[in-house]
Amino acid sequence: MISRQNTNLMQIVYGKPGLKPSCSIEKSQGSSEDEDSDGDEFFKPKGEINKNLKEGTEVCHVNFEDSSKFINHVKLKNWKDEELIESIRDRFVTGDWSK
């Protein structure tokens, strides 16, 4: 999943304007570049690492498993938690709408 904050979603999806579309053929080159830069990651300013990570999400495997089901591997939230329940209460018809 891609965070929305201050990122241009259009660029994430379609690539930067002017550049060739980032589909299929470019991807293999992209991943090899990523490998090269792996070692340098420690020595880059914070912002740049983030940038690289974001580009990383753009490069997907050419032989990616074809499934529409998005299985979030991040641990599920504990929905028994009272606070968490309260945080989505207003998404339900039973929520408090007087506010």
């Binding site: 999943m1 891609i2 965070s3 929305r4 979603l9 259009m10 994430i12 999806v13 379609y14 579309p21 980032s22 589909c23 999400t57 997907c60 990616f64 499934s67 529409s68 998005f70």
Partner: peptide, 24 residues
């Protein structure tokens, strides 16, 4: 949030149909 599969779909739609979404 856009799912990885959703993003890849958007790219394929552009490649085959020439339809580009405005994403905000």
């Amino acid at each position: 949030k856009l799912s990885p599969y959703g993003i890849e779909t958007l790219r394929h739609i552009r490649d085959f149909l020439g339809v580009k979404f405005i994403i905000k």
